[in-house]
Amino acid sequence: MPTLHGMPPRAARLLLSAGLAMALVTGCTGDSGLDRTAGDPVTEEEAQVLSALLQRNQQRGGADFVVTAPYGDGELLTLTGAVDFRNEVGRAQVVTSFDDGRDDDVRTLFFTDEEVWVGDVPGLTDALAAGGVPAVTYLRRPVTLGSEDGAPLLLDVLTEVLLNLSARRADDPRAFLDGDYTWQGQRSIDSRLTTLFGVPGDRTVAVDAAEDVLTQFVTPLADGGFDVTVTLSGHGMRPIDLPAAEETAAAADHPDVAAALGI
């Protein structure tokens, strides 16, 4: 499982350097602005709770989420859905929007750390029916995180970033006292007061000042030229059922359809 100071080898191939480092202040996040200056290192008390933030997501079970990635000039990829951190599975509506007048591209996505299911794609059911596979609404394919033969798929990078915001065990609190973790003030996110922390790799974490749970994580993608923003809310159990086998076909069995529809 991932920790704050090291991601698993698969996640390391996401073009993310270092680890998914987080920050959290419990009990005193509401008044942590007293006698503090943005850029101050975290205190020993803060370091104690920094180490358990990803574990807290695991303990809560899941959350609702919005992930945004402005990956191109006038192009925005947005995932809105729910994640089950304990079972490493999620579902989302995926919207690609453009500012040049093109219609939004909208799809339904289910995902684990190994596979994705893509559905609600215009033309998918008809194309599969023409190939002798009727009543199928999802194509399933392996997660593509990049290799020597090709670059990672942005959609898969985003789901992997999300799934890695959870860990079974806490980190060593002493690791957060090296001066690289800083207090950055407070601001409101979706009408919730949050405490901001700067973490290694030009990342930012926002923590709910009332409930002490992760509210937002912002991270650059190396060589991507843009930031990915993950916003969590409604922390709690999120049971998610993957599409049934009879609704699903393997993309590898229908490469022409998958390629034509961008799956």
Rank of each mutant, 00 (worst) to 15 (best):
E88W: 13
V89A: 11
V89I: 14
G90E: 12
G90D: 11
R91T: 14
R91G: 12
A92N: 02
Q93A: 14
Q93D: 15
V94K: 14
V95N: 12
S97E: 03
S97K: 01
S97W: 02
D99A: 13
D99T: 13
D99Y: 06
D100M: 03
D100N: 06
G101A: 00
D104I: 10
D104E: 14
D104A: 14
D104K: 11
D104S: 13
V106S: 08
V106D: 08
R107P: 01
R107W: 06
F110G: 00
F110H: 06
F110E: 03
F110K: 00
D113L: 13
D113Y: 10
E115D: 15
E115I: 12
E115A: 15
V116F: 00
W117T: 03
V118E: 13
G119D: 05
G119N: 09
P122I: 02
G123N: 01
G123R: 01
L124Q: 01
L124G: 02
T125K: 01
D126P: 00
D126K: 07
D126C: 01
A127H: 00
A127W: 03
A129N: 03
A129T: 10
G132H: 08
V133I: 15
V133M: 15
P134R: 10
A135S: 15
V136A: 14
T137W: 11
R140M: 09
L145E: 10
L145Y: 13
L145W: 11
S147C: 12
S147D: 15
E148T: 15
D149C: 14
D149N: 15
D149I: 12
G150W: 04
A151G: 13
A151N: 15
P152C: 08
P152V: 07
L154H: 04
L155D: 08
V157H: 04
V157F: 06
L158R: 05
L158F: 03
V161A: 07
V161S: 02
L162I: 01
L162K: 00
L163W: 00
L163D: 00
N164I: 04
S166W: 03
A167Y: 08
R169Y: 13
R169M: 12
R169N: 13
A170C: 02
A170H: 03
D171L: 05
P173A: 05
F176G: 00
F176M: 01
F176D: 01
F176H: 02
L177R: 04
D178C: 05
G179L: 01
D180G: 09
D180H: 10
Y181W: 10
W183T: 03
Q184V: 02
G185M: 03
G185D: 00
S188A: 12
D190A: 09
D190Q: 06
D190Y: 01
S191P: 00
S191R: 08
L193F: 04
L193M: 06
T194F: 06
T195M: 12
F197Q: 11
G198P: 06
D202Q: 13
D202K: 11
D202N: 11
R203L: 05
V205Q: 00
A206D: 08
D208Y: 00
A209C: 03
A210F: 05
